[in-house]
Design a protein around this nucleic acid. Structure first.
Length: 335
DNA sequence: AACAGCGTCAACCGCATCCAC
DNA sequence: AGTGGATGCGGTTGACGCTGT
């Protein structure tokens, strides 16, 4: 007699979430805060498993999530960290606060693994032409990539990452995210629904924070939300903002302490996230974000850890910091 | 135009871990 | 210390879109 399922199997809806379900979930979480997932389906009437609700929130609806369009630097980070930590996607994701473990895992499996495989083959061929045939026979399978920690030293990893970075720069235009899909096609619907909901919501005082459709940045033609081209400063600010108000705070918040102020912050950022996710909104909220950042910094004596981690993403500082970081991490993976 | 093959990624599943009692 | 529920995590699946034939 095993453990009972987390939820009744009968009557549970599976498959892709609809915009309407998203709105129900987001509005519930804004009201009650994340957590107590078991109660979510009951209280919202969603025909979803509690697990599914949590997953949908953490991987998709949670504020501050950046989707698709991994920057070369993010790729490098992932390569570094994967080499050091193995397939500890949650741990890796903690170094890339805007990315979910699922996203990183998918990206690794679909993009980076192949890139590294190619790179490894090419490198082996260049470096050990004679041994190339032998290596090819067993080169860089999934397990050899993830379990290569033992033999990889920092220099190996760095060269992997930098090569991958170079390569990814070349192939970016080819490897565009296809995250549009059927759900993206409904982004206008969810935008409309959200706008309607915000107008009718008793807490809609922040509704004016949501830019009108005319203020939205044009969604890029591929359907992704390209944040890193020509807007690096925005990206940094976005990351800083989202890390303060979305990830750490939302994840750490106790539902019991979900006071109105945090709800307000969450509400605006969460709705914006849904709108960003579904409509590609990236502008019109920057000034508010900056304000939040300022307030957050004023309110704390020590910089949030995620701020330090943001620094890791700074191109100029990345090399040294990563090296330092890896020196910290290496004992974990190299023992 | 139709089809097949492939790539991508959201979501599911099952196990692990945490935590309150 | 033991137990059971809640949550987290990583592997895997399947639906969908794209591309080539």
């Amino acid at each position: 007699m095993g453990r009972p399922p987390c939820c009744e199997k009968v009557g549970i809806k599976k498959g892709p979430w609809t915009p309407e379900e998203d709105i129900i979930l987001v509005s519930y979480i804004q009201e009650h805060g994340p957590g107590n997932w078991r109660a979510v389906p009951t209280n919202t009437g969603l025909l979803r498993c509690s697990k599914s609700c949590r997953l949908r929130w953490t991987n998709y609806l949670r504020p501050g999530i950046k989707r698709g369009n991994f920057t070369p630097h993010e790729e490098g980070m992932i390569v570094h960290l994967q080499a050091l930590l193995g397939n500890k996607w949650a741990a890796i994701a903690s170094y890339l606060p805007q990315r979910t473990d699922n996203d990183i895992k998918n990206y690794w499996n679909t993009h980076l693994k192949k890139k590294l495989k190619k790179i490894q083959s090419a490198a082996d061929h260049l470096q050990y032409p004679q041994a190339h045939n032998n290596i090819l026979g067993s080169s860089m399978s999934d397990s050899t990539v993830s379990n290569s920690n033992h033999r990889n030293n920092v220099n190996d990893i760095t060269s992997h990452a930098s090569t991958a970075t170079t390569l990814s720069l070349r192939s970016r235009n080819q490897s565009s995210s296809s995250s549009g899909g059927i759900y993206a096609s409904s982004t206008k619907n969810i935008s409309r629904l959200l706008e309607g909901w915000m107008r009718t919501s008793p807490k809609s005082s922040n509704a004016n924070l949501v830019p009108k459709p005319s203020q939205h940045h044009e969604e890029n033609p591929k359907g992704g939300h390209d944040q890193d081209e020509g807007c690096d400063h925005d990206l940094l600010s976005n990351e800083a903002f989202e890390s303060i108000f979305s990830f750490d705070n939302l994840n750490n918040v106790n539902p019991a302490s979900w006071d109105r102020s945090s709800t307000t912050n969450c509400e605006s950022s969460s709705i914006k996230q849904v709108l960003q996710t579904h409509s590609g909104i990236t502008a019109g909220i920057q000034s508010e974000k900056d304000t939040h950042i300022t307030r957050a910094c004023e309110g704390s004596n020590t910089p949030p850890l995620s701020f330090l981690e943001k620094w890791l993403l700074d191109e100029s500082a990345a090399g040294q910091v990563l090296e330092d970081r890896m020196m910290e991490l290496s004992p974990i993976s190299l023992v």
